[in-house]
């Protein structure tokens, strides 16, 4: 279960100027739920994902995931938490362009120093699920947008995390590829993953497998 308790997040623009990205936000997401956070750019959707993944810390308030206060974790423990529990699909995918598909997907496993056979098994599984096995040795920079996104999703799932966070996942895709991505989410939902999607793409609205849609405006939830 994910709990955000009275979260406020301020970003400093300069020494004297700051922006309030989240303003006293509280939210609970149960295990297996699919939540769509919708709203205009700058409404605070990405900040919520960033806080849940312990990529940044709230200015005030608390983020609790499965009983663990992730907002209080030290930097190293936050990394371990992400590695074990979170699969993050970034808006710009955040792949390393000069690495191959295989190498990019392997990145979350690298610090674990797995046996070669185990690593290969996990790689093969996710590459097959997301239909990119035939591109395994291709450099990511030579892939299309849709293929890059599938690599990003495969990478987010290689550790079999319980929580999937997707930040504007279809922002760089055409409608056909966006619909294909939505089908992938449906499959992930069937695996009982908790999924939170930050998007302003109308394709995500009123989907049958989405548990809740929450609108955001100026750093607040419009419940």
């Amino acid at each position: 279960m994910i709990e955000l308790k009275n979260i406020t997040k301020l970003y400093a623009l300069s020494k004297v100027d700051e922006v309030r990205a989240l303003d006293d936000v509280s939210l609970t997401v149960k295990e297996g739920e699919v939540v769509v956070l919708k709203g205009a750019s700058g409404s605070g959707k990405s900040t919520i994902l960033s806080l849940i993944a312990a990529l940044s810390k709230p200015t005030s308030g608390e983020v609790v995931v499965d009983g663990k206060k992730v907002s209080k974790l030290s930097d190293n423990f936050a990394s371990i938490f992400r590695r074990d529990s979170i699969g993050f699909i970034f808006q710009k995918y955040n792949l390393i362009p000069s690495l191959s598909v295989r190498e990019n997907i392997l990145l979350p496993l690298v610090p674990l120093n797995p046996h070669a056979k185990d690593a290969q098994k996990k790689l093969s599984e996710v590459m097959e699920i997301f239909h990119i096995t035939h591109k395994a040795d291709t450099l990511v920079k030579n892939l299309s947008g849709g293929e890059q996104q599938r690599v990003a999703i495969a990478r987010a799932n290689v550790n079999n995390p319980k929580i999937i966070l997707a930040d504007e996942p279809t922002a760089n895709l055409d409608e056909k590829l966006s619909l294909s991505f939505i089908e992938i989410l449906r499959e992930l939902k069937s695996l009982n993953k908790t999924i939170i999607i930050a998007t302003h793409d109308p394709l995500f609205f009123n989907l049958d497998f989405v548990t809740r849609e929450i609108a955001m405006h100026n750093g607040t939830l419009q419940l």
Partner: peptide, 16 residues
């Protein structure tokens, strides 16, 4: 810098 950020986001510790 961006690469270091990506690696951290993917669960690499500072030590890693």
């Amino acid at each position: 810098k961006r690469e270091v950020g990506i690696l951290k986001a993917l669960g690499w510790r500072v030590d890693d």
